[in-house]
Write a protein that binds this DNA or RNA. Structure first.
Lengths: 208, 208
DNA sequence: GCCCCCACGATTGCATGCAATGAGTATACA
DNA sequence: TGTATACTCATTGCATGCAATCGTGGGGGC
């Protein structure tokens, strides 16, 4: 039931854009088409969508360039996450509307996913943790924009990040701090914890 | 130099999506293609991009539906604007980094654009006023997401809105209040003024 | 009169063809 | 050896063709 375009889109996003070796490289439509087994048309469409998200750059007569994320862009990404996530905390915590039970469960799920062999799932749950908070605000448009940041983060090297020794534990600790502040109903503390988490993530990303 | 796709994209966004009579209606690729004078391929690509922004819905075997914005979505849109614009004010005002001169000039430009005959330009300057604040933060990713909200606003009926008697004057007054608070260095007052502006916009949109 | 079913037509989604364009390279020349 | 130049070929951007699929209307049955 998945169309060729969707296959191409998913393939590129999950298997090509995340490859650190390919950063900055060019892809030709034909090349991808041959690899996926469809014609250039759906590939073109997928590339167009990725270009709209600034994940690739369509260069005439050259191909699609996998845009490397600069340190500046990573910083901007984290700033944007901060804006959204702090807003979510400020909205939800005072009214006791934060999804504490779900967050607790996600934290537990994440805890048992230690080791590089679970890196991908660890990251998925990590995103779910934050996205759950944002989604609880109940603003679909906000959630959509927030979710759109995810692929950027993956490109920013989050995958490599979670393979670093000790980083998973640090993430768990930081998530616990966020959850604790939320559970206590302390919105300001939650914001501080979120900022700490994003700062620490940013530092690791910029260092790597 | 503009490609067929860009022509189609611009045409649809500016001349079709903004037409209140077409809300909820369907467009066929061939129909648009004939009208613009290109083949279906670039039209498809343009529609795909619009669908990625949720401005149209691609329904198989039916065509592209111009998604009508619900009251809920308009509310969400204004909430999102609030998050971003308040953040901009909080970031810029305390450090005196707000672009007061530019905002003042934009306000003046807007003042002389009274009457329905200037509605389009009035709206353009209106967006520029807010976008200038956001852009001054210096976060390109933030600006990009904020700009992406613009076409939604147009669809929400901002055009009709500015044709209402007295609305332009009200907008000017509200913008003056925002600018005054910024100029005085009072971030909290700026946020309050922004909230007031968005609330008032929302009310008019939902009533219309 | 009402409902169901079938066949037609319209529409999408993809494959393919083709011309225009520019990147990359080999070559000639200083 | 370094540089300018012309040429080749890959690549895009768009047009067109074609099959699959679904909406839709008309005719038949109840």
């Amino acid at each position: 039931m998945t169309s060729g375009r969707e296959k191409a889109y998913a393939f590129l996003k999950e298997n090509v854009l995340t490859d650190p070796d390919l950063q900055g490289g060019f892809l030709s439509e034909q090349e991808i088409a041959d690899r996926i087994g469809v014609s250039r048309t759906p590939i073109r469409e997928a590339l167009l969508l990725l270009a709209a998200e600034d994940l690739v750059r369509l260069v005439p007569k050259r191909g699609a360039q996998i845009v490397p994320l600069s340190g500046r862009e990573i910083t901007e990404l984290m700033e944007l996450r901060g804006i959204v996530e702090r807003y979510a905390a400020e909205q939800l915590v005072p009214g006791g509307r934060a999804p504490v039970a779900e967050l607790t469960e996600l934290l537990e799920r994440q805890r048992v996913l230690s080791g590089p062999e679970h890196a991908k799932e660890f990251i998925a749950v990590d995103h779910l943790f934050h996205a759950t908070m944002v989604s609880a605000v109940g603003n679909a448009l906000l959630s959509k924009h927030y979710d759109g940041l995810r692929s950027r983060q993956i490109r920013a090297g989050v995958v490599a990040l979670y393979n670093q020794r000790g980083r998973q534990e640090a993430v768990l600790t930081e998530h616990r701090a966020i959850l604790a502040a939320i559970a206590e109903g302390d919105a300001a503390a939650a914001c501080t914890a979120i900022d700490g988490h994003l700062d620490s993530t940013l530092k690791v990303l910029l260092a790597g």
